[in-house]
Design a protein around this nucleic acid. Structure first.
Lengths: 212, 212
DNA sequence: TAGATTGTTAATCGATTAACAATC
DNA sequence: TAGATTGTTAATCGATTAACAATC
């Protein structure tokens, strides 16, 4: 069931819809029109309707959208119900921060393994998960079949670990290592470059200064 | 000198060029053509030339681009030479990770203050910087005039702190609090939603599965 | 000079917005 | 039914790609 592939721009916006709808739901809002949502999100109503209709008609003429069901639908589109399992490779500051700050559950992702090589880190416990040594990676993955690897390890270690995890059948790589990993061949990668984001901010500040 | 405003897409690509050129430079490559760079970066040569020409002719016909000067030029465009000063508000896991993992220096940003309210955190030292109590924020900012605030604090604290920092004259907000802050009025915000990135990854995995 | 590669214009493509008929 | 708002088509706009003359 491969609908003629959704534009990347739409996919990038879906998590944001999901977030706003989740907030509305939490605030007890039961229905919302594309017009209302467009005001809150600072996008056009037209775009919202267009985006949602890539996946089917979730609304009702004259009424709008039911917040709860739309939230659920977008969740399904984004794979919340797939209950993907994840491991974190590299439990330094960043691995730590991700383990603690990301609401995995809301997104249907189950964090089930932490790995590192530092003797001082291996054996410690975070959120009820013990950090395992990388030696145990194969054994663990064969037993637990995680789909997602979160790479918070040094850039120079990334390529070898990437290969190793591909061998083990992992499908998705959330990559913070600053070494760009390519998608393809059944593999999906999401390369996060926080430094790029900081530079975009600096450009913005600079542009604002010059606008005088 | 407000050139008819650069498309956002171009701006978003500049840090990536900066990164690749930095790597080339480190590897001792002195010149590169748009064709070669396009292969490495998986974009079209046309786009590279088009993007760069938003800012002026950095290349030379028949030769290509000088890696070092192009790297420097893009750095200038992105504000590296502005030497913006930054403070981090909230030294939990994430604030910590950012303080330690981001190469601020390469981007011309100087990290000069850390703030928190937890008694267990205030007074501790990271990278030679002592974590100060939020009570000291006004005093510190008046004395040091930082332009950038990195917000790694709980969502519910964000709006009040945002207001307080705007009062103090901060211009750019690198916001990890998941509470979306709006730009405008001389203020630039860069809202980072790591959870969105994770969901995009999940969508990608799901799509790949369905392609069978 | 001949070859290479840019800067830049023109053509194509896709994404966003506007409009409105369908319908709840 | 009348009013509201969607789903969807058509119009607009912008971004990407292709092409090529300029030129190092």
């Amino acid at each position: 069931m491969n609908k003629k592939s959704v534009p990347l721009g739409v996919v990038k916006r879906l998590p944001r819809y999901f977030r706003y709808l989740g907030d509305l739901l939490k605030n007890g809002v039961t229905r919302i029109s594309s017009g209302e949502l467009s005001e809150r999100m600072q996008v056009t109503a037209s775009q919202i309707r267009q985006d949602l209709n890539c996946f089917g008609g979730f609304g009702q003429q004259g009424y709008g959208y039911n917040v709860e069901s739309l939230y659920t639908e977008i969740g399904v589109i984004l794979g919340v119900e797939k209950h993907y399992k994840a491991v974190i490779i590299g439990i330094g500051n960043l691995g730590n921060a991700i383990a603690n700050n990301i609401n995995f559950e809301k997104r249907g992702v189950k964090l089930l393994g932490l790995f590192d090589v530092a003797p001082s880190t291996v054996g410690t416990v975070f959120n009820g998960l013990e950090v395992l040594h990388m030696d145990k990676l194969e054994e663990f993955c064969l037993a637990n079949k995680p789909e997602i690897a979160i790479l918070t390890l040094p850039k120079k270690e990334a390529p070898a670990v990437f290969l190793r995890l591909k061998e083990l059948g992992l499908k998705g790589f959330w990559n913070f290592s600053n070494m760009e990993l390519n998608s393809g061949d059944g593999i999906t990668t999401e390369n996060v470059h926080l430094g790029d984001s900081l530079m975009t901010l600096c450009f913005g500040i600079k542009s604002t200064e010059e606008e005088v």
